[in-house]
Design a protein around this nucleic acid. Structure first.
Length: 731
DNA sequence: AAGGCAAATGTTTTT
DNA sequence: CATTTGCCTT
């Protein structure tokens, strides 16, 4: 078969990777070096020249989006649908395995997936039952502990507390939480992975089956794998070692979520025969942008080391703008975008990237004011919205009465007179007699264990769910959702609320009806194959599982031409001709919570690298000399990352106009705080021999070590040693 | 048990 | 500043 079309369009390194002989292979793929191309071509190559059946290929990604894109591109490349091939996320694949082997995994057939919110609620409840004070032991920390341990593959039994009170308490919570999950057959995200791993370790026959089946494994974004994911891959790879890992250590930005950048380094230890291939030619950005990115990332130690290069030429320099404040920053960005569009370009080619979601507000206002279309990505996802989760809980309850998480969520939503005391009683009974909340509620009603009013309220809820179940028997999915939205009283609740927010919630619920209508499990790649002859779950249950695993990013009109706004985290993997990195200030980026620890600072730096390398042609860095953060005026220094970019690549933009402001406005904003051990204070106007007149924005140190940041109309803001700079205060 | 007002609290988030 | 939490009152 002629397969030249698979290799012709590739460069040498890409070709080497695509056509590499069977065995372990590590592909270090720099930003914009065509890694998805390599992965898809590799799969096509395996099928067309190595003679592998699609059935024997497993490709793992981190996001549903990436999985869907990969599947689409392979089918395009092969010009035929690929049946039998497993392409999915780690979690999706683990889920599928557990469904197929639920007995060996010690789960009910109808085990339920807990998403992050369900998990938090459950841990909270577990802690309450253990009488652990939430004030002293933050729930989020306990959840973090549990997930952290699971990500490392540790069960409570594996953990030694060494008498440490912190460990001891968290271990107690972990143990109780695990018991609660097992009792109700609930599985959180980390558990999916851990259990899938244990499934194989504990069932050699099953493991052997999959080892035999999968002749080739491929992993995308390998730098983001955590310990258990990597262990899972190694076990599956078995003796064949036919594993291709594609990743970029410089783009590891999820360490705080358990990702182990070390896995990349370990790979060549674990697979000594592994070939390592570096993809260093970048097809995305101009040379200036790549050099800037390289300048920043080279400050990190212990990199595997890649040097990106391009044939696209230098391009424009990096533009640096010192904004007066966050409003000026936003205004400046809109002006540049206006110019960009006036030159005949699209809004959609421009992206504004920032470190934290809170920054989007001011930017949005400016875009709104400038009447530019925009779209904010990230933030709250569809299936995570409260109204959607409430409705899903009703659906779950109609399907499975014993779903405790769902019961707890909606038994009093909308409020129907089942308060904390009643709920406590139900929980106690359930725990004492080892039954579900639903059964406990039933018994309390039957035996009238509570005051009449409470019993009536609980009874009403039980009747409601039973009635809704009866009413929706055999109904198509969208009809069922619609009936529940109405019958639960959720719709009425939001209608009563009134206001724009409530209106959006109603629309979202309607959207869920629509989503249920277009839901087709056969199209869902995580279940595209009948699960080995096991009895299938109901369409409703399948929809609910789908909702848990896929948070639902796919709404909105991606076709619309609008400015793209998102965090730098969400921007990973994307590219834009024109990129603005907003809020380039120490404290914001790198974030103050990550500035101290060297390891975390390096991750921030990698995030900066990711941000810079999103840009194809033009890159703007903007910092604000003053910024309102949480209602307080802050005077941050320009981000240290800016100074890590070679000076000759940067073009500093000065707009003097922004400093011509009424003096009284300046005073009122700045006048507070003394610079200890000097005759200066913040907001003070001073003159400097060379830079002229300026205003003191910020200071650090005291006495002879004091440095002040002075904003000069012409020279911009400078950090000066008070002792050396000879600043003269002016009244 | 529900609703209202003061106080506390602010990263990033593929599943 | 803006949103969520928690206490307090009906």
């Amino acid at each position: 078969m002629d397969v030249s079309h698979l290799l012709d369009s590739l460069n040498d390194a890409q070709r080497e990777a695509v056509a590499s002989p069977p065995g372990a292979c590590l592909v270090l793929a720099g930003a914009g070096s065509g890694k998805t191309r390599v992965l898809t071509h590799r799969i096509a190559w395996l099928i067309q020249t190595e003679g592998l059946s699609p059935y024997s290929i497993l490709a793992v990604t981190f996001t549903n989006k990436a999985a869907a894109e990969m599947r689409g591109r392979i089918e395009q490349l092969l010009a035929l649908p690929i049946r039998g091939m497993w392409v999915g996320t780690f979690h999706g694949i683990a889920h599928r395995l557990l469904r197929a082997h639920y007995q060996e995994a010690a789960l009910d057939q109808n085990f339920q997936i807990l998403d992050a919110d369900d998990q938090l609620r459950l841990v909270k409840r577990v802690m309450a039952s253990l009488d652990i004070d939430e004030k002293k032991w933050p729930v989020r920390q306990a959840v973090g502990f549990i997930n952290g341990q699971k990500n490392e593959g540790h069960r409570p039994a594996h953990i030694e507390d060494y008498g440490d009170f912190y460990l001891k308490t968290h271990l107690e919570i972990y143990r109780a939480y695990e018991a609660a999950c097992q009792r109700a057959s609930m599985v959180d995200f980390a558990e999916l992975l851990l259990r899938a791993h244990e499934l194989w370790l504990g069932n050699p026959a099953i493991l052997k089956h999959y080892q035999n089946r999968f002749g080739a494994l491929l992993v995308d974004e390998f730098q983001d794998t955590n310990t258990i994911q990597y262990a899972w891959l190694r076990v599956l790879a078995g003796d064949k070692n036919n594993l291709m890992a594609v990743g970029d250590d410089d783009q590891s930005i999820y360490g705080w979520r358990g990702a182990k950048i070390e896995n990349i380094r370990r790979f060549t230890d674990d697979f000594p025969q592994a070939r390592t291939i570096k993809l260093e030619q970048n097809y995305r950005s101009t040379s200036s942008i790549l050099k800037a990115a390289s300048g920043v990332i080279s400050q990190n130690v212990d990199r595997l080391g890649k040097e990106l290069w391009t044939e696209l030429g230098d391009g424009d320099p990096i533009q640096l703008y010192a904004a007066y404040d966050e409003m000026d920053e936003a205004k400046y960005i809109t002006e540049r975008i206006r110019q960009w569009v006036n030159e005949g370009n699209l809004y959609a080619e421009a992206a504004i990237l920032y470190r934290s979601n809170a920054q989007s507000r001011v930017l949005e206002e400016a875009l709104l004011y400038a009447q530019m279309p925009y779209r904010v990505y990230g933030g709250q996802r569809f299936f995570e919205r409260a109204e959607i989760r409430n409705l899903l809980a009703y659906m779950r309850l109609v399907s499975q009465r014993d779903a405790d998480a769902a019961f707890e969520r909606v038994v009093n939503t909308p409020s129907r007179g089942v308060g904390d005391r009643s709920l406590d009683a139900i929980r106690h009974l359930a725990r004492a007699t080892d039954i579900s909340l639903w059964q406990a509620a039933h018994r309390i009603v039957d035996e009238k264990q509570l005051p009449g009013r409470a019993v009536n309220a609980i009874h009403a809820f039980i009747e409601l769910i039973d009635a809704l179940d009866k009413e929706t028997q055999g109904a198509p999915l969208p009809k069922l959702v619609d009936t529940l939205a109405e019958g639960s009283g959720l719709r009425a609740q939001h209608e009563k609320e009134g206001g724009e927010r409530a209106q959006t919630r109603l629309e979202n619920m309607q959207e869920l009806v629509t989503a249920a209508g277009s839901f087709n499990p056969r199209e869902d790649y995580t279940f595209s194959e009948p699960s080995d002859g096991q009895p299938s779950v109901s369409l409703l249950d399948e929809f609910l599982n789908h909702a848990a695993l896929e948070a639902g990013e796919g709404q909105g009109d991606p076709e619309e031409d609008c400015v793209q706004m998102m965090t730098m985290h969400s921007a990973k993997g994307l590219e834009f001709p024109l990129v603005f990195l907003a809020g380039m200030e120490d404290g914001l980026f790198p974030h103050s919570m990550s500035m101290e620890a060297p390891g975390r600072l390096e991750e921030e730096r990698r995030l900066c690298y990711v941000g810079i390398t999103r840009a194809m042609r033009q890159l703007y860095l903007i910092y604000a000399e003053s910024r309102r953060i949480n209602g307080k005026e802050r005077f941050n220094r320009p981000s240290r990352f800016i100074s890590e970019i070679p000076k000759d690549l940067i073009n500093e933009i000065r707009v003097k106009q922004t400093f011509v402001r009424p003096a009284n406005q300046m005073r009122s904003t700045f006048a507070q705080g003394e610079v200890a051990g000097t005759n200066l204070k913040l907001g003070q106007r001073v003159t400097h021999a060379r830079f002229g007149e300026g205003v003191i924005l910020n200071s650090e140190g005291e006495g002879s070590n004091a440095r002040v940041q002075v904003n000069f109309p012409d020279a911009g803001s400078k950090w000066l040693m008070v002792e050396l700079a000879k600043l003269d205060p002016i009244a």
